[in-house]
Computed example of a mutant assay.
Amino acid sequence: MQERDARASTGDTKWVFLDDKILEGKEAVCEWMKTAYAEPPVFMVENLIAEDDFVIAIGKIKTKNEDGEMILSSYCDVWKLRNGKLAELKAFVIENEL
């Protein structure tokens, strides 16, 4: 996890990637990001919606797979904040054709 992301998350942050994995705690997220985002992803945010303690981001994300090929996916991230920090994420990601 990049330094700024780590500071923006609660220590007990929970990330749920639907139909994939659940990461619990800042350390688990940091370890996952080292491999999943060895090269920083490119986010293209199409909509950003905020209300109360929730922020929803909808858009596209470009990442590299294990073979170094670019993958384009559509995503919807639903963030729950606590005391101004990222406490929970529910991520919906669908791979698209490039």
Rank of each mutant, 00 (worst) to 15 (best):
S9E: 09
E31D: 12
D19H: 09
K80W: 05
T10H: 04
V78F: 09
V16R: 09
F43D: 06
K64H: 08
C30A: 14
L48Q: 15
I49C: 04
L48F: 05
N83M: 07
D52N: 15
K80E: 14
F43K: 03
A36F: 04
A8Y: 01
R7S: 13
N83D: 15
M70V: 14
V45M: 06
L98N: 13
E39F: 10
L86I: 14
L89C: 04
L98A: 14
T63P: 06
M1N: 10
G11W: 06
K60Y: 07
S74E: 13
K60V: 03
I71M: 08
D5V: 12
K90Q: 10
E97F: 14
E46S: 01
I94K: 15
C76M: 08
L81M: 12
E3A: 13
R7F: 14
E69L: 06
F17S: 09
A36T: 09
E31N: 13
R82C: 13
I61N: 05
D12A: 03
E39T: 15
W32F: 12
E46Q: 11
K64Y: 03
L86K: 03
E39C: 13
C30V: 15
D67K: 11
L81V: 08
E3C: 07
L89V: 02
A91F: 00
V45N: 07
D53G: 00
D67H: 02
W15F: 15
W15Y: 10
V16Y: 10
M1P: 05
D77R: 02
K26P: 09
E3S: 13
V78T: 11
A28D: 06
E97S: 14
V78K: 09
D77H: 12
D53E: 07
W79F: 11
V42P: 00
A50M: 01
Q2G: 10
T63S: 01
E88P: 03
E69H: 11
K64P: 04
N47R: 15
W79Y: 10
G25K: 00
T63E: 08
N83K: 06
K34Q: 12
R82A: 12
E66H: 11
K60F: 06
K64R: 10
K60M: 06
E46F: 00
D53S: 04
I22A: 05
E51W: 02
T10S: 05
D5E: 08
A36M: 07
D53C: 07
L23P: 03
S74Y: 09
N65Q: 00
D19C: 01
A8V: 09
E46C: 05
M1V: 10
K62M: 10
L98H: 10
E27S: 08
K62A: 08
